[in-house]
Design a protein around this nucleic acid. Structure first.
Lengths: 221, 221
DNA sequence: TCACGTTTGAAACATCTGTTTATAATCGTG
DNA sequence: CACGATTATAAACAGATGTTTCAAACGTGA
């Protein structure tokens, strides 16, 4: 099939270029020439550059959400009415993320794309992701709520986003950080290695003591 | 002075547009028309768009590094040969960051720019910031090393970047997150409020137990 | 083999980009 | 005031961008 080949070749090329340089910094001409397809092929198969960007995300997020949902199903089946511990939830999420690009060798690309989705303006992207994949995260955060009853809702909300920042930021800048780490500490860092380092940090962060409440005296400006 | 007025009007406009949409997505025409100055003024006063971007950063980072250096001086004077506790170091850094845009009301812009510096390609920017302002961070991380002697060097390196991600990500997406938080939890979140919430999380993350070392059995692929 | 829908190809389109040029206005200073 | 330098302005430049057009090539079922 010539059609499918062109489509996947565009997607394969686009995802690494987007991950490397961002969306606005990657032109369709760069993509199509590197992918060895005609310039018009993008607009023919995807309609527009916007849609191409969304398609790139869908190819990662569709399998991820499906796996993540299934993993949460199993977890809930195992625990029945018992509360699922926080570590289990985090572990399950990490595993679901890791499994997605197992065939492809590009977890890096996946995480970098997520980072771009947050940091780049691209309003349409945030809306698309929220609408298309928001439900998994709602389900996940609800389970986290049950696992951390001692946390006020607002506190848990912020801490989850703190940790989201940690993960996305780390994997987004992975290459640069890895270079420094390798030069300074002579150790090659794999993604699994980073996840091993992240685990205790994230758990400790979620279980940190509550902040001191603001006293009236401390309120100024 | 007409010159100074044009220069600052360009910088004032550029920094908020950059923060809102990123560098590549903000054209010089957008900046100059919104700033009500001539298009050629940017190239006349700054030389190029690249240099304008760097100038925007310099206007934040110059005062910050100066304050931060002075604050660390005082801290080291107070503690003499004693080790400065981690909390003090973090507190000092937070205070230095907060003081910079006190006159301007744009801590948000400051943090968002930092986020962009990391996430956007813009190789020249990372180089510029590293060369121009790397020394303060070296000094800071060295003090953190003394404050956390139990951490292996590589572990501390990664944890510091984990926390950098937390902070930058949180403040970068502050507006969006604030909207959600306000809607869901009926509480208005100020920047000082967020810092109050961040403190125990960051401390707990830095002091989290060390990750379990990789066993030979667990090594696969 | 023919006809038809799908896919490719090269070229052109209009628009936007950062930068430069040449001229005019403005300012500070003697 | 007048002169020289600095700054502002409008116009043009060369190149890149996403998108569209239309003819050619292709694949497939009759």
């Amino acid at each position: 099939m010539a059609q499918t080949d062109t489509v996947t070749r565009i997607l394969d090329t686009a995802e690494v270029l987007f991950a490397e340089r961002g969306f606005a910094e990657t032109s369709l001409r760069t993509i199509t020439s590197k992918a060895k397809v005609n310039l018009a092929a993008v607009n023919y198969h995807f309609g527009s550059k916007k849609s191409l960007i969304q398609a790139v995300f869908a190819r990662y997020l569709d399998p991820f959400t499906e796996r993540f949902h299934r993993a949460l199903d199993e977890l809930q089946a195992d625990y029945g009415d018992d509360v699922i511990p926080l570590e289990e939830l985090l572990e399950t999420m990490a595993r679901s993320v890791l499994e997605v690009p197992a065939e492809r060798n590009s977890l890096k690309v996946f995480m970098r794309l997520l980072g771009l989705a947050y940091s780049q303006a691209q309003g349409h992207l945030r809306r698309y992701i929220q609408e298309e994949y928001g439900s998994v995260f709602t389900r996940f955060t609800e389970l986290v709520r049950l696992a951390t009853p001692e946390l006020p809702d607002a506190e848990r909300f912020w801490r989850l986003h703190f940790m989201l920042g940690t993960v996305i930021f780390t994997f987004s800048g992975l290459d640069a950080l890895r270079d420094i780490a390798e030069k300074d500490y002579q150790e090659h860092v794999t993604v699994r290695d980073l996840i091993r380092r992240l685990r205790p940090v994230v758990v400790a962060a979620m279980q940190a003591p509550l902040p001191t409440p603001v006293t009236l005296a401390a309120q100024e400006a």
